[in-house]
């Protein structure tokens, strides 16, 4: 079964195309590592695939309504450290928030 399909995905920052024409299929049980130097567009690809930024082309996840998408994809960004100390239990539980529903 296919979990994610990208077709001809193009994402821009201003006039500059960061990604152009990316197509990809990810199926059940696959584990994929995305490797590239700084600025290659790894994060941009993830964000565009999730619909967190505007992009041309098709992403099977980005077209879903946000609440449905949240049950099918999780995103843990490489963010600056969390603003205040959070217990490990609490941090892990955050990942289940979208699935837990209420």
């Amino acid at each position: 079964m296919t979990l994610l399909t990208l077709e001809n995905l193009t994402a821009r920052r201003g006039p500059c195309a960061v990604l152009s024409g990316i197509s990809l299929q990810v199926g059940t049980g696959e584990c994929i590592g995305l490797i590239g130097p700084n600025g290659a567009g790894k994060t941009t690809l993830m964000r565009a695939a999730l619909g967190l930024m505007r992009a041309e082309g098709q992403s099977s996840l980005a077209v879903l309504p946000p609440s449905v998408r949240a049950t099918q994809a999780a995103w843990l960004p490489q963010s600056p450290e969390i603003a205040w100390p959070v217990t490990v239990r609490h941090l892990v539980a955050l990942g289940a928030m979208a699935r837990r529903g209420s």
């Binding site: 967190l52 941090l91 979208a98």
Partner: peptide, 13 residues
């Protein structure tokens, strides 16, 4: 959800 940042919260719907 915002604990992990704006992108993470948006991805949680």
């Amino acid at each position: 959800a915002l604990t992990l940042g704006e992108d993470a919260a948006a991805s949680m719907g």
